[in-house]
Design a protein around this nucleic acid. Sequence first.
DNA 1: CTGAAAGCGCTTACAG
DNA 2: CTGAAAGCGCTTACAG
Lengths: 342, 342
Amino acid sequence: MRPTVHDIAIKAGVSLATVDRVMNGRPGVREKTKAKVEEAIRSLGYVRDVAAANLAKGRVYPFTFILPLNDNAFMAALRASVEQAGERGRIERTEISIIDVPAFDGDALAKALIAAGEEEPAGIALVAVDADPVRAAVGALKKKGIPVVTLVSDLEDSGRDHYAGVDNQAAGRTAATLLGRFIGPRAGSIAILVGSLSVRDHQNRLSGFSEGMALDFPNLQLTAPMEGRDDAAVAERLVEEALARDPDIIGIYSLGAGNRGLIAALEKARGNGREIVTIAHELSEHSRAALENGLFDAVLNQDAGHEVRSAIRVLKAEADGVPVIAAQERIRIDIFIKDNLP
Amino acid sequence: MRPTVHDIAIKAGVSLATVDRVMNGRPGVREKTKAKVEEAIRSLGYVRDVAAANLAKGRVYPFTFILPLNDNAFMAALRASVEQAGERGRIERTEISIIDVPAFDGDALAKALIAAGEEEPAGIALVAVDADPVRAAVGALKKKGIPVVTLVSDLEDSGRDHYAGVDNQAAGRTAATLLGRFIGPRAGSIAILVGSLSVRDHQNRLSGFSEGMALDFPNLQLTAPMEGRDDAAVAERLVEEALARDPDIIGIYSLGAGNRGLIAALEKARGNGREIVTIAHELSEHSRAALENGLFDAVLNQDAGHEVRSAIRVLKAEADGVPVIAAQERIRIDIFIKDNLP
DNA sequence: CTGAAAGCGCTTACAG
DNA sequence: CTGAAAGCGCTTACAG
């Protein structure tokens, strides 16, 4: 059998309590005693049973997730993942509460952050809006010693401990390469549909996309980005107008949400005999159907479940003061085409 | 606080032992008592703490992984994942041993399976070779009541409990779509490099690819598949010869291992001013470099770590006689291009 | 600075 | 058919 705290205590000639003190770096142990225990741990090749430790601790981690009240499939999936994590909380000793805020509203988010901090949770996760009041609120939380993780959309220079989301610059470049190669040698214009340029993730996707297109596909002209507010109705109208206005459009990159509206516009275009190479974000019931019927050519995706679980792991590590293995927390940019749908 | 077994015992007016019997479906409980306990569980919204249960059980699951002695990066990664899982074993109460067998050798694999079964492990995972002796050996294991999971490569009609790997037919179709669209309207030939047609995963990729190409890209002709035995030297020679023989080759699909050899051949071709659109499998140091320098256009990947962890979860579930949530165990086909490398 | 004892939520012989 | 008690590997007051 594997060595336990008992074995170490015996080998080192001390009590369980002392073993525990050394293992957890708690003060009040003579150097000499500490050395004995550490030697016993090493020589026995001891590895602590985290599950048993958690059980004994009985500690629970109250975490607060602040999520935008955004009516789109991705945010719904994200919310569902958080709720699911809450249900698993018993095992992982987490207690997760969700606070809703209006989407793309920096002031409301900042207020919610301050309020959440009052409760002194063990950690806070937020989908950031790129605004100074938010930065200030995060700074205040950090000053109180509360771990903060940004989720999906990051917030630079805010002092947040970690960002649980994809590299959106890279996502934009990925979209550029796929769109450019799928279109091939033809010349034409590309329409760009964003959600809002007030969030970092959309800004970054746009910049990565523009960069990639300029570099590799001089045959394709980018048109000015349209802001769809991640709203299906707005998106539909904007895309329809753009297609009507500009007959040169042969490709669309939709980097935000509101896929339903985009799909409706593409269907109408197809009805008029016009096929547009299209790349969108986030796999959902709708985007999956669009891939299957050829309205979308590729969908870039971030796994909401992974992001939420990563955020929780990091918050827990921060709360425990143990280091985070960054490489392990990297979130991948999934590419889906009609053939590799999960 | 959340309800525990104690709360249930009190509410139902029984002892802990009886609660445990009902919860775990063990015999020897009067129907009436059982009903009382179940009612208490329901009304209290009880969810068992699996970690505590495992701790109390003290049960360990001895699992055997049978892996091919194959000198390629993917198999190395798979092996590393299994070893890593073994190290985490303390927490998850698993004890994993690895048995090596020669690659692509059905008889050796069958023998290893029989031998592994003698040890009466709690479960066995194998990278299957499509051969009747293997099928028979798996059948014998199942007769002994040992859970069996195929890993990476499946074995139909063998009675295995589960397959932890990607849908390779879909992977082949994915490769076809990407290759065809990247090449565009040009006409030409496509070379196919397989590892061995004695393994199901390679068979399936080939069939999915052929199907996809035939359907969507009549401008592209497939040449006869070359068997590289997942060996870099063999692969290099085969590809070089094919390129020399057939000047019409404008694309390559490499569906097995041996990427180093393929890369060497492509480099030589590039030296001769010949650029070949190439899709390969499995992300490694080499394939990553090839994506970055444009020798590869896309790499399809299966996450070895996911597969191993899934296999273990399933084996454990089978050993415990609890159901597996199939959807949760689906392994994704990752698509990597130069821009979304992790 | 150190230790004896109780307890986290479960399971398992053992006894009846 | 049912229960009292000990124990899994750890942590935590409390006492000294």
